[in-house]
Design a protein around this nucleic acid. Structure first.
Length: 524
DNA sequence: ATGTAC
């Protein structure tokens, strides 16, 4: 056998193997998608049921909000298996739900909603996520794109300096142990009392930026150590600060009620959470829950669903610590709001009042809350009654309708604003909650574009791409701490958020009000 | 998401 022939074989196999592997992956993906399409039952054009008999131990069916195209995207990862797993949780009511932006997560899918009975159900840290109260704050200004454009570079640079960002990066505040307890107890109120922001901001935040039931004694020293230097920082990953402009208005009167007048108005969107503090609270309580499942004899298809009865000491402790994490996140977005106002003041040489920088709303999309909902009573057939539930929203946004007592007076007539960030550089949406959401999803809707490609996959496929240059070519100013972060957050890695919000709108669980596009992006 | 693995 000649060496030439051998080397040809080697060369050929080196050339063809990656292609063959890629083909294999595509075939496997297609097969997986077809398997899911066979497992689910189409209810209507925007709803699919995952039957209760799909998997042993499911206490309720699954419900996916998607059209056929989105269903085929969802079927590529293991998130529908996770929807089935969540359905096995003790005390779950209604359906284990998946929003159109669903994708694979830790135990629970990201983009999922699960409500459990407070009296005999469980609470699970995995149903909230590592970034407790990851959420969105929207600010409006009275500035227009025409006024901002000439100073855009300067503004983005000022914002980047004013709001520290990046993995593990600390901020301007240094809190001692006593002060951090007050943050954990009082949330955004703490920030306003220290001069970061206005009292009028507070009534425009979900839960007024202060979740009741927070108990700092249930938060260990490690989360405090990590969190103390991080209050008032953006973080990294998909967290961002954007200067945006109104591109489209679908409901002018509803927009007007939010102080959004029309095309060209400049807004600011802040997307961040509880940083290292929330992350460590989640980690600490996952260990506690690991012990709890043994103690209470809870059987789970996936250990990552670790949980405890809501009424148990472990469950109550987690909820008290989670509320601390949520309050830290609200204080975080409140401090950032204050520094955004300062940066605008500095650049435009006008007071925040003259610039009209006001809070539109602030929502959580990673949280568990004790809420009352009307659910069919299993014992009495058709009869429905109000029941106290623990509503886990992980990558899902509360979407309460007009007239709900929990939403601000300013929005009683229009419904709760729902803030839906898109992927970096495309567009984002502002929507409102509906009665349909209240009836069907425990008052919940989608939370964003939803990742379609893993960070590693995005890195592989986009390596070398000039993401910043691409954005700048479209008139978007970018200030980012890391090139890698930009790659991982490239549009290609995400679903189209316009498709996501169209599905939730057609299903009736939230209605589009405004579409915005970015002028400037700040990232860690 | 995250002191990107104690």
């Amino acid at each position: 056998m000649g060496t030439e022939e051998q080397s040809t074989l080697v060369t050929q196999s080196c050339l063809y193997r990656p292609v063959a592997v890629l083909k294999g992956v595509v075939v496997m993906l297609k097969e997986a998608v077809e398997e899911w399409m066979g497992a689910v039952r189409k209810i209507d054009d925007y709803r699919w049921e995952l039957p209760q008999n799909y998997k042993e131990g499911m206490n309720v069916p699954g419900l996916v909000f998607a059209d056929e195209e989105m269903m085929r995207v969802i079927g590529r990862d293991q998130s529908l298996e996770q929807v089935a797993n969540v359905a096995t949780l003790p005390g779950i009511v209604g359906r284990s739900m998946a929003m159109p932006d669903i994708h694979w997560g830790y135990g629970f899918p990201i983009g999922g909603v699960a409500a459990t009975r407070v009296n005999d159900g469980v609470v699970s840290p995995g149903g909230v996520g590592f970034d407790i109260n990851c959420g969105v704050r929207l600010l409006r200004t009275e500035l227009t794109e025409v006024e901002v454009r000439p100073k855009l570079q300067e503004l983005v640079a000022a914002l980047y300096t004013a709001v520290p960002s990046g993995v593990g990066v600390g901020g301007k505040l240094r809190l001692d142990a006593k002060e951090i307890d007050k943050v954990l107890l009082n949330g955004a109120l703490w920030a306003v009392e220290r001069g970061y922001g206005l009292h009028e901001d507070l009534e425009l935040l979900e839960s007024q930026g202060r979740l009741p039931g927070a108990d700092p004694t249930k938060v260990g020293s490690k989360p405090r150590q990590r969190g103390a230097p991080q209050l008032g920082t953006l973080g990294a990953g998909n967290h961002f600060l954007e200067v945006q402009v109104v591109e489209d208005v679908y409901q002018p009167e509803t927009a007007q009620a939010m102080g959004i007048h029309g095309y060209g108005q400049v807004l600011v969107m802040i997307h961040t959470g509880s940083r290292g503090l929330g992350h460590q609270v989640c980690e600490d309580y996952l260990k506690v829950m690991d012990g709890a499942i043994k103690r209470y004899g809870i059987h789970l298809p996936d250990r990552q669903l670790a949980c405890a009865p809501v009424s148990s000491p472990e469950g109550q402790d987690y909820l008290a610590a989670m509320a601390c994490g949520a309050n830290f996140a609200w204080a975080n977005r409140q401090c950032i709001t204050h520094w955004v106002r300062e940066a605008f003041t500095q650049v435009f040489q006008k007071s925040p009042h003259e610039l009209g920088i006001r809070t539109v709303y602030d929502v959580a999309h990673n949280i568990a809350k004790i809420e009352e909902h009307v659910v069919p009573s299993p014992s009495s057939g058709q009869v429905s009654k109000r029941v106290k539930l623990c509503v886990h929203r992980k990558g899902a946004t509360r979407a309460y309708p007009a007239g709900h007592p929990e939403i601000p007076a300013a929005y009683q007539g229009i419904g709760q604003p729902v803030l839906i960030p898109g992927d970096m550089g495309r567009y984002s949406f502002i929507a409102v909650g509906t009665e349909q959401a209240m009836a069907e999803t425990f008052g919940s809707t989608c939370h964003g574009a939803g990742r379609m490609q893993s960070r590693a996959a995005a890195m592989r496929s986009l390596k070398g791409t000039d993401i910043r240059g691409r954005l700048e070519a479209r008139g978007i100013a970018v200030q980012a701490g890391s090139y890698r972060g930009l790659l991982e957050e490239a549009s290609e890695a995400y679903k189209d958020v316009a498709h996501v919000v169209d599905i939730t709108e057609k299903a009736g669980i939230s209605l589009k009000v405004v579409k915005v596009r970015p002028l400037g992006v700040i990232k860690g």
